[in-house]
């Protein structure tokens, strides 16, 4: 009797999980099927999930009409720059705030944290003006520079640096390492999981960022995927098939990336949120 009850409970849990999986993925499955559809009516009822006359025409169309590969490359460049900047600057800035003793240290740390408490929406326009003044308008650097130093990142790295026992560093100093070597060869490797978590946050943020690149980039050849996609509708007016193909092409790489790194996503939050 107890076994049957347990089995029913099992089945119910899995039914619920499958139902939710459908809820979260059906729009994408629909997009996927549409992207292979020929000239047949898209909006039939019941919706057809397996295309009657599957075709790759829509994909050919996308590559012909918009520089999809270019968008992808731009996103990769912007995201890589963004991740490297955020991890590097946060690791660098957090080190003296956690590992060195100097007067005024806590004051500097508090000042750095201040922006977390004060929401500044003015940054959008002012930073745009600054970027134009620096002659950086329409460059990749312009996209990543304003967010190169992540206050949250500094906070996260500092918390992890604090957990490193000072004896290890002292030993390295006695062995003749200078402070930068101590940082780079001893302390930083010990907090690599935190750096990894930060890298993942930075990755998702940059890969999906939209508003800022939309503002500081002018040439279509510099657009990242997200901005390029948003312009799609003007190119393909009412051609849902081509839009669907472009959406699929955008999704596939990030899904593959996520499949291989998902372990770090959840671990990253575990380290970041609670500490």
């Amino acid at each position: 009797m107890k076994k049957i009850l347990k089995f029913i409970k099992y089945m119910m849990t899995y039914s619920l999980l499958i139902l939710l999986a459908v809820f979260f993925t059906f729009p994408f499955l629909w997009i996927l099927s549409t992207s292979f559809k020929g000239p047949e009516n898209l909006f039939t009822w019941p919706p057809q999930f397996i295309p009657e006359h599957p075709t790759l025409e829509n994909y050919v169309n996308v590559f012909k009409r918009i520089p999809m590969a270019r968008y992808f490359l731009n996103t990769v460049i912007i995201t890589s720059l963004g991740v490297v900047f955020q991890v590097f600057f946060a690791s660098l800035a957090a080190y003296p705030l956690a590992r060195l003793r100097w007067k005024g240290r806590d004051l500097v740390f508090k000042l750095i944290l201040l922006p977390l408490l004060i929401p500044m929406q003015g940054a959008l326009i002012v930073n745009f003006i600054t970027i134009v003044r620096f002659g950086l308008y329409n460059t990749y650097i312009a996209v990543v520079l304003p967010s190169a130093v992540s206050v949250f990142g500094i906070f996260l790295m500092r918390q992890h640096y604090l957990s490193v026992p000072p004896e290890i560093e002292d030993a390295a100093r006695i062995d003749g390492c200078n402070e930068f070597q101590v940082f780079w060869k001893i302390t930083f490797p010990l907090v690599r999981p935190a750096a990894m978590a930060l890298a993942i946050f930075a990755f998702t943020a940059h890969w999906n960022s939209f508003l800022w690149p939309l503002i500081v980039l002018r040439d279509e050849t510099r657009y990242p995927l997200q901005v390029g996609l948003a312009q799609l509708n003007s190119v393909f007016e009412a051609n849902f098939r081509s839009v669907a193909a472009a959406l699929v092409l955008t999704m596939v790489p990030i899904l593959i990336f996520f499949y291989f790194t998902q372990r770090y996503f959840i671990e990253g939050y575990k380290g970041a949120v609670i500490k």
Partner: peptide, 14 residues
């Protein structure tokens, strides 16, 4: 987690 990772633009257009 798929809707999160695909980003606001893809999701909104979909």
């Amino acid at each position: 987690y798929v809707p999160v990772i695909t980003g606001a633009v893809v999701v909104s257009i979909t």
